[in-house]
Design a protein around this nucleic acid. Structure first.
Lengths: 192, 192
DNA sequence: TTGCATGCATACAGCCTGTATGTTTATGGA
DNA sequence: TCCATAAACATACAGGCTGTATGCATGCAA
């Protein structure tokens, strides 16, 4: 009479189930895209039932959102760690950190392609808040405090877009170096 | 031996039906996105039946592809027209033409967000071939023939990504000028 | 211990997609 | 002109997916 000795407190249980679903979902979303991934597939991969999924998430999109938010958070933290305590060339360091963090399998697809399409550009902007773009902006300002405040936001956004496209190209198998150099040159030109 | 039928069954009729479906589809895709648009909605809006849709297009994705390809073609032609016969500052002219062409309602969403998500980054790259990016590259080379051939492709891509993000931001209601200036500055820095 | 809330599984209704099948219309040869 | 045929389009159907409703079990608090 082996009682259920695995009496996991509800809070842990909840976190574990969410993680299990999010991991399975992430994997499938990356592999086949959001639209082509069905909830039956996800729960089968996670070895639970759709009841669990819809208990923990509002709907399929909400699960996707959770995956993307977690991904954005990891990216943000990776950049933070990389740039933490760097005194000289924070832009170069941050750039390196960004490319490295974005080389994680599926991350570019999730954050740059499916995210905007499924959640919308506006919401993805929110989710990204404080991510690479913010670091880039402070880096630019630090390197050249004279940068006009007026256009700074726009410059930051388009440069950040360059970084994103570079990361995506690299994720698709293109060589990294030309892109790293291209972005470095653009940033250098911007702050001088 | 049944030889190849050379008959041309009502070509005009065919073109008109395709256009009617593509127009209705474009409108709904822009309004609600690809995934949230159903084929019953599309054909209702076009005042035909799903039979017509599936007669002219393989599936919903194929219809979307047709819409996107047409959109990309219009963009390309608009840029061509704008830059045609410009002697000085072809980059500035092309830039202006690009932004103007990208201000068409829904175009940025279709080409920059839904396109890559639905058709994939690779295929969108094909579809865009000869579009703004090609014009940008030749413009860069013309302005400064010394640009290293090695990294030119990468530079072109990240700059092009900047243009795209700028166009998207403008399409979302942000002011155009800061973005136009930011891109002009980046391009200037690149060719000098 | 008891009653309730939470966690999860099962069942169901509605919609959507793609295909198969039927009907009309136009075309080009006889 | 008329007919055979392929294209154009409409209708019907099968399977799958989403989200919700419902039911049972388990942890928790009183």
């Amino acid at each position: 009479m082996q009682e259920k000795s695995t009496r996991t407190p509800n809070a842990d249980r909840r976190a574990m189930m969410r993680k299990k679903l999010m991991d399975a979902a992430r994997s499938l979303f990356v592999e086949k895209g959001f639209a082509a991934t069905s909830t039956p597939e996800i729960v089968k991969s996670a070895q639970v039932t759709r009841g669990a999924l819809y208990h923990h998430f509002e709907d399929k999109e909400d699960l996707f959102r959770a995956v993307v938010v977690a991904e954005a958070k990891e990216l943000r933290q990776a950049i933070e760690v990389a740039t933490k305590g760097t005194i000289d060339d924070p832009l170069g360091t941050g750039s390196k950190g960004y490319f490295e963090a974005m080389s994680i399998q599926g991350r570019a697809q999730l954050l740059l392609i499916d995210g905007p399409a499924v959640l919308g550009v506006q919401e993805m902007d929110q989710i990204d808040a404080g991510g690479g773009r913010a670091a880039l902006r402070t880096g630019l300002i630090t390197a050249n405090p004279d940068l006009s405040d007026e256009g700074l936001e726009a410059v930051t956004k388009v440069l950040s877009a360059g970084y994103d496209r570079a990361a995506l190209a690299i994720a698709q198998g293109e060589a990294a170096k030309p892109y790293e150099q291209a972005m470095a040159a653009l940033v250098r030109a911007t702050i001088s």
